[in-house]
Simulated scan of single mutants.
Amino acid sequence: MAHLITDECISCGACAAECPVDAIHEGDGKYEVDANKCIDCGACEAVCPTGAIKAE
């Protein structure tokens, strides 16, 4: 199960820098998780300053 980045994202990039499989990329107005690459490790969720990343 991949993680989902909500509209609370402030596009700081902390999640992308922490992702061990490069599954997070800047999208239109917020970052997005590539569900095909996500290994559900939760590293991104732990570093998000706004709590915008949730398990899908």
Rank of each mutant, 00 (worst) to 15 (best):
1 M>D: 13
49 P>G: 06
38 C>V: 04
21 V>I: 08
19 C>L: 05
27 G>T: 07
54 K>H: 13
39 I>Q: 03
18 E>H: 04
2 A>H: 13
1 M>E: 10
8 E>Y: 13
8 E>F: 11
12 C>A: 08
45 E>H: 08
44 C>L: 05
32 E>W: 05
1 M>N: 12
22 D>G: 15
51 G>V: 12
35 A>K: 09
46 A>G: 02
19 C>R: 07
13 G>D: 06
50 T>M: 09
20 P>S: 01
32 E>V: 15
9 C>W: 06
52 A>E: 02
42 G>A: 03
18 E>G: 04
48 C>M: 10
41 C>M: 06
52 A>W: 04
4 L>A: 09
39 I>F: 01
11 S>P: 00
15 C>A: 08
20 P>M: 01
19 C>K: 09
34 D>Y: 06
28 D>F: 11
16 A>W: 01
3 H>M: 10
21 V>L: 03
25 H>V: 12
4 L>E: 15
27 G>S: 03
5 I>Q: 01
47 V>T: 12
8 E>K: 15
10 I>G: 00
15 C>G: 07
16 A>L: 01
4 L>S: 08
3 H>R: 05
12 C>F: 10
54 K>S: 14
14 A>T: 09
9 C>K: 08
20 P>F: 01
29 G>D: 04
14 A>H: 10
51 G>F: 02
36 N>R: 10
25 H>I: 09
20 P>R: 00
38 C>W: 04
16 A>K: 05
28 D>S: 13
56 E>R: 14
13 G>I: 06
50 T>G: 00
22 D>S: 14
48 C>S: 10
56 E>F: 13
25 H>M: 04
36 N>P: 00
44 C>M: 07
29 G>R: 02
22 D>N: 14
49 P>C: 11
30 K>Q: 12
19 C>E: 05
1 M>C: 14
52 A>S: 14
17 A>W: 00
54 K>F: 11
44 C>A: 03
1 M>P: 15
42 G>F: 07
53 I>K: 09
30 K>G: 02
54 K>Q: 15
42 G>T: 08
1 M>S: 15
52 A>V: 10
32 E>C: 13
37 K>S: 06
42 G>L: 04
10 I>E: 14
4 L>V: 15
44 C>F: 12
28 D>M: 07
43 A>R: 13
32 E>S: 07
35 A>W: 08
21 V>D: 02
21 V>M: 00
51 G>N: 05
36 N>E: 14
12 C>P: 10
37 K>G: 00
43 A>C: 14
53 I>Q: 10
51 G>P: 12
4 L>M: 10
53 I>M: 11
39 I>P: 00
41 C>E: 02
6 T>N: 01
17 A>C: 00
47 V>G: 06
35 A>F: 01
46 A>N: 03
48 C>A: 11
50 T>L: 02
51 G>A: 08
30 K>S: 07
53 I>H: 09
44 C>P: 15
3 H>A: 05
45 E>G: 03
12 C>R: 07
53 I>Y: 14
32 E>K: 14
45 E>S: 11
55 A>M: 11
29 G>A: 04
54 K>I: 15
